[in-house]
Design a protein around this nucleic acid. Structure first.
Lengths: 224, 224
DNA sequence: GAATATCAAATCATATACAATCGTGAGTAT
DNA sequence: ATACTCACGATTGTATATGATTTGATATTC
């Protein structure tokens, strides 16, 4: 087994900290202290930062440095819209290839989601949601599209500790939509229908979050 | 005016050489000689390589190095399929915002394309095609989607000097489809219709290339 | 003769040292 | 008070040197 490179180590550590919220959006990633803490030099840190930048988790400015990406409402809208697009397509591409076993597995996950609706844990629900869709994506033959899906998920991860958290009231509908989506795939529906349905599923979540935030800040109107 | 950083210089030079075909697909990008030639050290070269990798123009393997991306037929299919997806969506998003001036500009470009059909130059036609769609994308409000479009174009650029060149016979249809697309946008058609139409436009090109290559190699069958 | 071990050259990976650049705040003129 | 300049500290950018890994050729064993 090959030892993990320093660059990969730096990437992994920073990535974990962004995911866990240790580095909140806006946090400045200063190279020198991180290098000292990890006991490695600055160069691998720089390369890891480039990588995180390419994935959109952080922003980088020349001679100024890197910071965990800040996400404004329009940014969030655009990211989710894009995610809806690629998830919808990935689901449609996978649809004809999905096996009965995968359907069953996805349905089990969705049942678990339904059970957790009583005492709701956003973190856990989000993870189960990822698992659910991951099962469907297993059969997607186009790795490019899957890569874009993962990019989108990364982008969302940064927001877990921001104001764009999941809307509890939305969870019920989400579970029902999952069920309908499975039925659609099971019955061998046309790709366009599956794509449309999966896309709409994500867009509905987007609209729920935006509506909640609009109430909360009672500020700017927005066109979904 | 800020001086260009060494990393940017290295990126620009390598990028140009990949685009122009000086570095063909499969060409190994060895750091040391490039550094010596440009009169800079290895570190900026490495970072530029990371960036090119993130954009998908080159592949990189640990302790082995980088080479200009090789694209097999299935790879090409997936990349084009993805491009069709994001271009279609970008066009649909832009559609309601497109101005009469932009329509006129796009139509002029398309007219130029029609004129070049007589003595056909793939390189020039491809460029005009990019210009045409770029005009429509000017109004696209979602920068994420636009970024994905550009990623897709980068991916295609590598192929200019491979076996996946444009099919001359396809050019005529392409010009006509452009005209129909403009009419659709002008008449304020529904987003779904525009998206479907723009996506299909790209997929038709994909099918033409695949069909040509299938004849040429008369080898493997493929499911478009 | 085929498979495997050995070694050297090429290349990548990282550490260290120093140069270039940027942001900030004190000081000064208006 | 405001705007401007400048110098300093913090931080990034790059060069050089050295260590680590891969690869391919050659030798060796069975």
């Amino acid at each position: 087994m090959m030892k993990e490179s320093k660059t990969d180590l730096a990437y992994r550590v920073m990535r974990e900290r962004i995911d866990s919220g240790t580095y909140m959006p806006g946090y400045r990633l200063v190279i020198a202290p991180i290098a000292q803490e990890l006991g490695i030099s600055a160069v691998p840190i720089r390369e890891a930062i480039r990588r995180l930048e390419a994935e959109g988790l952080i922003t980088f400015e020349r001679n100024v440095g890197a910071q965990v990406a800040l996400v404004k409402e329009t940014e969030y809208l655009h990211a989710m819209q894009t995610l809806a697009l690629v998830e919808g397509f990935a689901t449609a591409l996978a649809s004809p290839e999905v096996t009965a076993e995968q359907i069953a597995r996805a349905r089990r996950i969705n049942d678990t989601m339904r059970q957790t609706l009583d005492d709701f844990d956003p973190q856990r629900f989000t993870q189960l949601n990822l698992d659910f869709h991951s099962v469907l994506f297993e059969s997607c033959p186009n790795p490019h599209v899957l890569e874009l899906v993962h990019r989108g998920w990364n982008r969302m991860r940064v927001l877990r500790n921001s104001s764009f958290t999941f809307v509890p009231g939305r969870a019920h509908e989400s579970v029902e939509e999952h069920e309908r989506l499975l039925a659609l795939i099971e019955s061998g529906s046309a790709a366009e229908l599956v794509e449309q349905s999966a896309r709409e599923h994500r867009l509905a979540t987007l609209r729920a979050v935006l509506a909640r935030n609009a109430e909360h800040h009672e500020g700017e109107a927005l066109t979904a």
